[in-house]
Design a protein around this nucleic acid. Structure first.
Ligand SMILES: [Mn+2]
Ligand SMILES: [Mn+2]
Ligand SMILES: [Zn+2]
Ligand SMILES: [Zn+2]
Lengths: 140, 140
DNA sequence: TCCTTATTGAAAATGATTTTCAATAAGGAA
DNA sequence: TTCCTTATTGAAAATCATTTTCAATAAGGA
């Protein structure tokens, strides 16, 4: 389902700031903080308010169009998320993030933990960190 | 390796605030924020400064005695971590967290992603969320 | 017990996020 | 197109979280 459509279903509007945030995230390829999204909007002379960036990210999160990326250091970057369940793999050097899906492979594992602990597991965060192909070359 | 020992190796001291933070986390069973650790220390009349809580958590993180827990909502809870690699499973109702280890089961999966993406993966975050046995009963 | 120095904590500084509220602009209706 | 309703914006202030500073303190080895 498209952003436009999702918004419409809820009586919400497709506004300039919302377009901008999506456009910036779309061009980014690595997780961005609210601050850095705002900065890019200034560079692009789109001049949207920082407050709107926060509000838009919250909205996009609810709509599952954006996902929060955690890190041991700087938490809370946001990346555009394609529909469906999946996770992110982030390069520690350049920040480049790629998506991967792997619920199937994990579900077996999760079932096992469920049995062992007695918990009923209904959600998880899985994030991988490493070095992307490009940065591996540069390392030589 | 014990806290006492780890500190000693680095020429650091086992102080009252450090004891307190560990004691509070030890009694907690669910991830605590710096603020809530501080509050408990006030309740316990141990009267350590909030600043020391932050500093102690940072130190304990470096020593791998404490782990940060992320959530989609309130990030940055801390739990005591037993030595070795493992993850946490958190109850969404009462917050109770349990540890589980599963590197073996995951490594296969990670190798696969590594091949698919070309990234060299060297770290990951895995956190599970669900309902603990106790809270499942109360649900009736 | 004494001395060195790692550590503490109050206060201030900084930074991130949220709230408020009057002005604006989406977008449906006419 | 024009008009109208109301969701949305953004500047500023308020709030909350985290870090820095620095003089006073207390670990803990000698
Ligand atoms: Mn986080
Ligand atoms: Mn693991
Ligand atoms: Zn890279
Ligand atoms: Zn529970």
């Amino acid at each position: 389902m498209e952003l436009q459509e999702k918004l419409h279903n809820k009586g919400l509007r497709l506004t300039q700031p919302r377009r901008e945030v999506v456009a910036i995230l779309n061009a980014a390829a690595s997780p961005l903080t609210p601050q850095s999204i705002y900065q890019r909007s200034v560079e692009r002379k789109s001049d949207i308010g920082l407050v709107s960036v926060y509000r838009t990210l919250e909205l996009l999160s609810e709509l599952n169009l954006v996902r929060r990326v955690h890190g041991r250091d700087g938490c809370h970057g946001y990346v555009l998320a394609s529909p469906g369940h999946h996770h992110h793999l982030v390069c520690r050097k350049c920040g480049k993030a790629v998506e991967f899906s792997g619920s199937a492979d994990l579900s077996e594992f999760i079932t096992k933990i469920q049995k062992e602990t007695g918990y009923k597991i209904n959600e998880h965060i899985l994030q991988l960190y490493g070095i992307c192909p490009k940065c591996q070359e540069e390392r030589q």
